[in-house]
Design a protein around this nucleic acid. Structure first.
Length: 452
RNA sequence: UCCCCUGUAGCUCAGCCGGUAGAGCAGGUGGCUGUUAACCACCUUGUCGGCGGUUCGAAUCCGUCCGGGGGAGCCA
């Protein structure tokens, strides 16, 4: 039986078995206490082994942190403080030892930096275990949300020939000895240069224009030489795309989506959240409840710039209309001015990609960024440019080869319709939900520049 | 890519203005105890990140390379 279930079970005379890994052993004169964890929940089960049981000296007294074990016995009410029930062992089997002299994990707190050097063992710690359980919960919540909203999940390609954001940040996919010179170079395995996707958006648009409401949820790759606590070279992104949808409806969905996800974690991950509230961020629970409890503030870029200009606050990078919002500006808006999630819309066309829909005044595009306190941009989205000629002009203005994107232009040539979507950085959401300050600690095996 | 900080025992870290190293935890041994970050006593462990330089002498100063962290840019 899983420990998560056992801990909610009443003591019985029935013989049962538990399997897990030893977290710590404490010896009394004629008995030992072994705490075991099986990953099903944060809490350990206290196993009590009496001195007269078989293999007490040969096995039980030799158990150390990390050993994989199986106990059979009975669940009993615990006479001591600290737990309601405990497991009275009758027999023990050791699946695998973990020599204490070499096993890197000790029954003490380790720094996250140290744990990053042993990514294969760190899931055995309380904090990384809790992160990954919450991550798993969020994955199912994402899928449940879109199911309830009548979306179809599309698996867009990981290998892509279209660079959504502009050249220079794709990983190139090729074969050994494919050709002479710097890749990408002929002969091309796929007939032309290909790379790992930087976004599933363009492909998702094609399917939105047929199925109406679609979303992708998959890995994304950026070959940026970033060294920050919020960037990974390989990360996961959720990207819904909706036909017959404008920017307003796009923002509505994003807000509903984020609230749904956070409420889901608040409802289902009490224990794990408790850990983060205790050791990582005291105000965590409060901050999460603040997101679900009120409407997101919405402001246009122009209004935001005005607010920043009149704030009297001195920024390292001065702000003026036409320049992009810096991290410090975003933080100031969401943390100090609005004190919560903030949606900034209608950015200058010059600082946004070609596919965003040009507003009627011709200077701004129907873009939106959702800014969260402490982590900045968590969602970026837009209504897409659905007019063939306008899109063509914007591509030309940004030096994008229309031939390479003819299929994308085709979506505007045949049965074009207003549509919109956004991208959610899954790890950034996880950072917000857990309070973990470094993005490398919310993904199983982080890949960053210089490290894989 | 730029700026700042950092690299000392298995882990976390102290070592001020240069005189070849310490603490807590972990580990080992013994003791005590229905224990729970168990407790008490004793014990082991270091090419002080690499290379080069200054100096009678460098963990300590300088240069350089490598690793780690934070921030910026880019973005999610």
């Amino acid at each position: 039986m899983l420990i998560k279930k056992i801990l909610k079970t009443s003591p019985t005379a029935e013989i049962m078995e538990v399997k897990g890994w030893v977290r710590t052993r404490r010896d009394a004169k004629d008995l030992s206490f072994i705490e075991i964890n099986d990953g099903s929940c944060l809490k350990n089960l206290q196993v009590v082994a009496q001195g007269d049981m078989d293999n007490f000296e040969s096995l039980v007294r030799k158990l150390t942190t990390g050993c994989a074990v199986r106990f059979t016995g009975r669940l009993a009410a615990s006479p001591a403080k600290g737990q309601d029930v405990e497991f009275q062992a009758e027999s023990v089997e050791v699946y695998g030892w973990a020599p204490a002299e070499s096993y890197p994990l000790q029954k003490k707190r380790h720094s996250f930096e140290f744990l990053r050097d042993i990514p294969h063992l760190r899931p055995r710690t309380n904090s990384i275990g809790a992160v990954m359980r919450i991550r798993g919960q969020l994955v199912t919540a994402v899928n449940r949300f879109f199911e309830e909203e009548d979306f179809v999940q599309i698996h867009t390609p990981v290998i892509s020939t279209s660079d959504c954001e502009g050249a220079g940040e794709m990983f190139i996919v090729t074969t050994p000895g494919a050709g002479e010179g710097e890749p990408p170079c002929a002969p091309y395995f796929f007939g032309r240069p290909a790379g790992l996707t930087v976004s599933g958006q363009l492909e998702a648009e094609a399917y939105a224009m047929a199925l109406g409401r679609v979303y992708t949820f998959g890995p994304t790759f950026r070959a940026e030489n970033s060294h920050t606590s919020r960037h990974l070279a390989e990360f996961w992104m959720v990207e819904p795309e909706m036909a017959f949808c404008d920017l307003r409806e796009d923002i509505d969905l994003a807000e509903k989506f984020l609230k749904f996800l956070i409420a889901d974690v608040l409802d289902n991950c009490h224990e794990d959240l408790e850990l983060f509230t205790k050791f990582v961020d005291k105000g965590l629970r409060h901050r999460l409840e603040a997101v679900t409890g009120r409407a997101f503030t919405r402001t246009t870029y122009s209004e935001a710039v005005e607010i920043l200009e009149n704030s009297g606050k001195k920024f390292e990078y001065p702000i003026s209309w036409g320049s992009d919002l810096q991290a410090e500006h975003e933080r100031f808006l969401s943390e100090e001015i609005f004190g919560g999630p903030t949606v900034v819309t209608d950015y200058p066309a010059s600082i946004k990609p070609f596919y965003m829909r040009l507003n009627d005044e011709g200077k701004t595009v129907a873009a939106m960024d959702v800014l969260f306190p402490s982590i900045g941009e968590i969602i970026g989205g837009s209504q897409r440019e659905d007019r063939y000629e306008v899109l063509e002009k914007r591509m030309a203005a940004q030096n994008i080869d229309p031939a390479a994107y003819q299929w994308y232009l085709d979506l505007r040539r045949y049965g074009s319709a207003p549509h919109a979507g956004f991208g959610l950085g899954f790890e950034r959401l996880l950072q917000f939900v857990t309070g973990m300050t470094n993005i490398r600690d919310v993904i199983a095996f982080p890949r960053t520049a210089g490290r894989a």
